[in-house]
Design a protein around this nucleic acid. Structure first.
Lengths: 251, 251
DNA sequence: CGAACCTCTGAGGCAGCTCTGAGCGACGCC
DNA sequence: GGCGTCGCTCAGAGCTGCCTCAGAGGTTCG
């Protein structure tokens, strides 16, 4: 059904595609059904083909069927340990990239060893933008770029973000951002000229378990303005009663 | 009853259609029968195939039968919680889009996270135009566009509205509108060359629980004229005793 | 173990938005 | 052509939404 969405992302930028032109295939493995649901939805929204599994056994079965390009894998699973699943996944589908989900304090060093192979990980609680960005990075590095333009750089007007280097410049001038500021700006830059509601921003940029109110968004928009728009023609605009929008100056 | 309305939209514009050419299918889930009735009517008027259900169980049964493309889902249901319904809906019908209805002050934070997949929500009390606009957005993004031209832009003469960017231009000139002005103009632009009564406008643009009188409509039409028609050939016309009509100049 | 930084809460204040009321003008019916 | 009705617009009151400042708590790093 998602014919159109498979060729363009929500923002109309060229999407990542497999060499044969179809959408990347991603398998989500998590035993928390709510979390799996949210992740699945977010990744489908990127235009990818997604399946989910609740435990290691189901994951392997699904992997054999779907032949995924990437797997989002919770390290803590009910039946097996994530690393065992990983080994068998690689047997089923050699070269598949894996994005691990892990608790902050747990086994971070073991992850570090595993991810040496080019895989990646995020710690819970994470934001959806974080997961999507990491996955895009993995897929891109695995050769899913649609064109030469499909790179780790986001450009809106004279504002440029290098996602890999975590560097942002405006008119060539380097802008220093905190982690949250960076992620908020990334979300805005991935959706230029589109009004984003505070709720949308909260859903995407803040962790899924964040209970706070939309007031934080206002606050961080205020921070961003001070750094991005400081003394320049503003690019971040408030649309009262609707949300915020980032656009290039002029026109 | 609205047999005719099921084949063409009220405005005659190309309707959203499923890839097989039939009308989009929408399921309305709300335990308030009056509200469900109103919603059902409004969506049928859009030319969509609509069914309604009063609780979670009925919703799932109806979903299995109808296989809807989108669901309008009240978060507060008598039997189940919205989360669970959502998950099971996605199981029955993977990729279905969901528009949540929620009270403004209640549970707003719990919505965060649910809507992550590209789903959307509106807070009660809402206006019907709001609901319809959001649903159209969801369906469009899910690949229901009839053609590539079917986008987030409304055009009447030299008046252009970009719903995503919330931008309106006339003859290329940007027009700044308040939220209510924007929604009123959207309603007019979705029904060009058609006389709309003040009562109709009130029903559509203002929240269903608005107790005010038709005088506000006159007032807001007056505001719109100042901004849209200012110094130009007028597009907004009064039909005394009947209502208002928006038409392109000339012809 | 202290310092710097980051994130979020709360409160105050301003500005823009929405709606009320009233007066005036325009249209149409006798 | 007069009069009643309908519609337009102005002015202002109250409200809401948004911005910003100040500071507390937590985390990271030296």
């Amino acid at each position: 059904m998602l014919v159109d969405a498979m060729n363009t992302t929500r923002s109309g930028r060229p999407a990542l595609t497999r060499p044969d032109g179809t959408a990347p295939r991603v398998l989500v493995v998590d035993d928390d059904p709510d979390l799996a649901e949210v992740l699945t939805g977010a990744l489908r929204y990127e235009g990818w083909e997604v399946r989910s599994a609740g435990d290691g056994a189901a994951a392997l079965a699904a992997a054999r069927e779907l032949l995924p390009d990437a797997v989002v894998l919770d390290v803590m699973l009910p039946d097996t340990d994530g690393f065992a699943v990983l080994r068998r996944l690689h047997a089923v589908r050699p070269g598949v990239c894996v994005l691990f989900l892990t608790a902050r304090d747990a086994v971070e060093d073991r992850i570090a060893g595993i991810t040496a192979g080019g895989d990646d990980y995020v710690t819970k609680p994470f934001s959806l933008e974080e997961v999507v960005a990491r996955l895009r990075g993995l897929l891109r590095r695995a050769g899913m770029a649609r064109s030469r333009e499909e790179g780790p750089r986001l450009v809106v007007g004279d504002l440029v973000m290098d996602e890999d280097a975590r560097e942002v410049t405006r008119a060539g001038e380097l802008i220093d951002l905190s982690p949250t500021e960076f992620e908020l700006l990334r979300f805005l830059m991935r959706n230029p000229r589109r009004v984003l509601s505070k709720a949308q921003i909260l859903d995407r940029v803040w962790s899924y378990d964040f209970g706070g109110r939309a007031h934080v968004v206002e606050l961080y928009i205020s921070y961003l303005r001070k750094k991005v728009d400081a003394g320049r023609e503003p690019m971040i605009h408030t649309v009262r009663g609707a949300g915020y929008v980032l656009k290039p100056v002029q026109r």
